[in-house]
Design a protein around this nucleic acid. Structure first.
Length: 499
RNA sequence: GGCCCCAUCGUCUAGUCGGUCCAGGACACCGGCUUUUCAAGCCGGCAACAGGGGUUCGAAUCCCCUUGGGGUCACCA
C-alpha cells in the first residue's frame, strides 16, 4: 500500500443496535489492511446523535467484533494516544475547529426551521431545480445568531462550500468528480450543539492520523464534502477506498428492517446482524471467510482461507467495484466445511459460546458429553442444527412428545412391527453388560442378523421412542449419551403410550 | 427525477497490460453412489461474457450509445 508513515485505519460504528453484517465487512477490511501492513486499527464510536443512541449497543458491538476476532489497537476499553474515542467525549475539539471556520469566514450561522427547509426543497423539486441549500445573502452575522437563539429559532452552522468542482481519487473507483452545483453548504454543527457526522468524522480522522478510509460506497457522495472541509481546515487528505454495497439476494439493500418485515409476515427473520449468525450457530471463522469474499477475492480458485491467510493475501487493489449479493446458502456451505475442519477443542469452545448466547439446553452438558455428541453428529451445518437434532437428550423424559407421523411410519406400520421390535429389544438392552457404543452396536447388529431385519428397521423404532421423532445423532452414541436408565424409561414410556 | 457508481453462469467470482477462454472455481440446482435417521461425503451434469455500434489481424478484456441494477439527494451516521 503506497503511503509514507504507518498505516492507520479505523472502523467507526454508531451505537444504534447490533453490529450489522455489512459493518462487519467494513471492519474486517480495515482490520486486514492494518494487520497486513503492520499498521494500527482504530475503533471510534460515532455517537453524536443522542436521540439514536441505544443503550447497551456499544457493548454488543464490541462483543461481536471480538467474536469475529477483530481486535482494535486503539479505542474503547483499550485507550490510545489519540483518544477519547467516543465522539460524545470530544465536543470541545469539534467546537474549537468549528469556531476556527466561523472566524475565518468559512462557515456561517443560519436559523431556518426544519419545516422551512423542507418547504424550500419541495418547491425546488416542483420547479425541477436542484434542491440544494441556497446560501443566504448577506450572510447572517454572529449577532443575528444570538438574536435568533433568543427568539427560540434553531441555530446551526453551515460550511461554505468552495466555488469549484471536487474530484475524489478513490483506490477502487478511480476519479469521481462532483460538480459545484451539486454541492451545498451543509450543516456542520446542529442546533443542539453537536457536530454532524461529516464534521466530526473529518476532524477525528485528522486528529487520529487516519491514513486510509475504507468505507461503503454509500459514502462516495459525502467524500467531496469531507475533502472541502479538510482543505478549509488545513488537514491532510487520507486515501479513500469505497467498497461495494452488500445486498440481499433480491437486490435490495440488506437492512435491519428486513427482520421486522419478515416477522410481520410471519416468516423466519433472516440473519442480518453479526449476532444473528452467532446465535444461529455459525463459526466466526466461516463468517469472516465468507464476508471477506464479498467484494474481494485473492484471485484464482482460492476460497476457503483462515484469517491469517486472509491477512497475507488481502489487498485493497483487488477489491471489486460491483455490489455483492449475500448468498446465505454459500455461507452455510462454508460453515459446514469449517465445522468439520476445525479442531475438536475449537469446536467445543464455539459450541459453548453458542449455548451461552442462545441458552440452549446443551449448555448444561459436560465437555465430554458435548465432544461425544459432536463426534456422533458429523455433518451438522450449524450449531443450531446440532441443537435441533439433539436437544431431546438434554430434556426430562416426560417432555418427549411423540411425533404422529413418525409413530405411524416407524412404530405402527405393518401392524405394529416397530413396537414389536421395541418390546423385543427392551429386555436385551436391560441385560446388556456394558453400556457402550460398541456394545450397543453389537447388540443391535446381532438382532438384525437374527431377525433378518435391516439396521434401519431396528434403529428407527428406538430413535422414535427415545427422541419422539426420526432425527437424532448416531443411534449408538445417542443411547450412550442418554444413559441406560433414561433409554429404558423412554422405551417403556413409548410402549405404554403407543401400544 | 438530478447527480454518482456498476455490468462474466441463478449467486460469489477467476479472467491482471486484447490472442493459449467455443470462458475456470465455488455455492445453488439436477442425476448417480454411499447410508441406522437427518445431514454430511463422493462422482457426474446443467449454466454466463446484458444489447448495439466501433477500434483491431484478433475483444469478456479498449471506446461510445442503449438497457438494466445500485447508491445518494437530512440539523442520521
Amino acid at each position: 500500500m503506497p503511503t509514507d508513515g504507518p498505516v492507520r485505519v479505523r472502523f467507526a460504528p454508531s451505537p444504534t443496535g447490533y453490529l450489522h453484517i455489512g459493518g462487519a465487512r467494513t471492519a474486517l477490511f480495515n482490520w486486514l489492511v492494518a494487520r497486513g501492513s503492520g499498521g494500527r486499527f482504530v475503533l471510534r464510536i460515532e455517537d453524536t446523535d443522542r436521540k439514536r443512541n441505544v443503550a447497551d449497543s456499544l457493548a454488543k458491538i464490541l462483543d461481536d467484533l471480538r467474536w469475529l476476532g477483530l481486535n482494535w489497537d486503539e479505542g474503547p476499553e483499550v485507550g490510545g494516544e489519540f483518544g477519547p474515542y467516543m465522539q460524545s467525549e470530544r465536543l470541545e475539539t469539534y467546537n474549537r475547529h468549528c469556531e476556527q471556520l466561523l472566524k475565518a469566514g468559512e462557515a456561517y450561522y443560519t436559523f431556518e426551521t426544519p419545516a422551512e427547509l423542507q418547504a424550500r426543497r419541495e418547491q425546488a423539486r416542483k420547479e425541477k431545480r436542484v434542491a440544494i441549500y441556497q446560501r443566504p445573502d448577506p450572510l447572517p452575522t454572529a449577532e443575528d445568531a444570538v438574536r435568533a437563539r433568543a427568539e427560540g429559532r434553531p441555530v446551526v452552522v453551515r460550511f461554505k462550500m468552495p466555488d469549484e468542482d471536487i474530484t475524489v481519487s478513490d483506490m477502487i473507483l478511480g476519479e469521481v468528480t462532483l460538480k459545484r452545483e451539486e454541492l451545498e453548504d451543509f450543516v456542520i454543527r446542529k442546533s443542539d450543539g453537536w457536530p454532524t457526522y461529516h464534521f466530526a468524522c473529518v476532524v477525528d480522522d485528522e486528529l487520529m492520523k487516519i491514513t486510509h478510509v475504507l468505507r461503503g460506497q454509500e459514502h462516495v457522495m459525502n467524500t467531496p464534502k469531507h475533502i472541502a472541509l479538510q482543505r478549509a481546515l488545513g488537514f491532510a487528505m487520507p486515501q479513500y477506498a469505497h467498497m461495494p454495497i452488500i445486498m440481499n439476494m433480491d437486490g435490495s439493500k440488506m437492512s435491519k428492517r428486513d427482520k421486522e418485515r419478515a416477522l410481520a409476515q410471519g416468516e423466519p427473520p433472516p440473519e442480518i446482524d453479526v449476532h444473528d449468525f452467532r446465535a444461529a450457530g455459525y463459526l466466526p471463522e466461516a463468517v469472516v471467510n465468507f464476508i471477506a469474499l464479498l467484494g474481494w477475492s485473492p484471485g484464482g480458485d482460492r476460497e476457503q482461507m483462515t484469517t491469517e491467510e486472509l491477512t497475507d493475501l488481502f489487498s485493497v487493489e483487488r477489491i471489486n467495484k460491483t455490489a455483492a449479493k449475500f448468498d446465505r446458502d454459500k455461507l452455510l456451505a462454508f460453515n459446514t466445511d469449517w465445522l468439520s475442519r476445525v479442531s475438536a477443542a475449537r469446536r467445543l469452545a464455539a459450541l459453548r459460546d453458542f449455548c451461552e448466547v442462545t441458552g440452549s439446553p446443551l449448555g448444561q452438558a459436560h465437555d465430554d458429553t458435548l465432544l461425544t455428541l459432536m463426534q456422533a453428529s458429523q455433518g451438522i451445518r450449524t450449531f443450531a442444527q446440532l441443537d435441533g437434532k439433539s436437544r431431546f437428550i438434554f430434556v426430562p423424559d416426560e417432555q418427549i412428545r411423540f411425533d404422529e407421523k413418525a409413530v405411524k411410519k416407524v412404530l405402527r406400520k405393518n401392524d405394529g412391527e416397530g413396537l414389536r421390535v421395541l418390546a423385543d429389544l427392551l429386555p436385551r438392552l436391560e441385560g446388556l453388560p456394558d453400556w457402550t457404543a460398541e456394545a450397543i452396536e453389537g447388540l443391535l447388529r446381532g438382532v438384525c442378523e437374527e431377525t433378518g431385519l435391516g439396521l434401519g428397521k431396528v434403529a428407527q423404532p428406538i430413535r422414535v421412542a427415545v427422541s419422539g421423532g426420526t432425527i437424532s445423532p448416531t443411534i449408538f452414541d445417542t443411547l450412550v449419551l442418554l444413559g441406560r436408565e433414561r433409554t429404558l424409561t423412554r422405551i417403556r414410556r413409548a410402549l405404554e403410550q403407543l401400544s
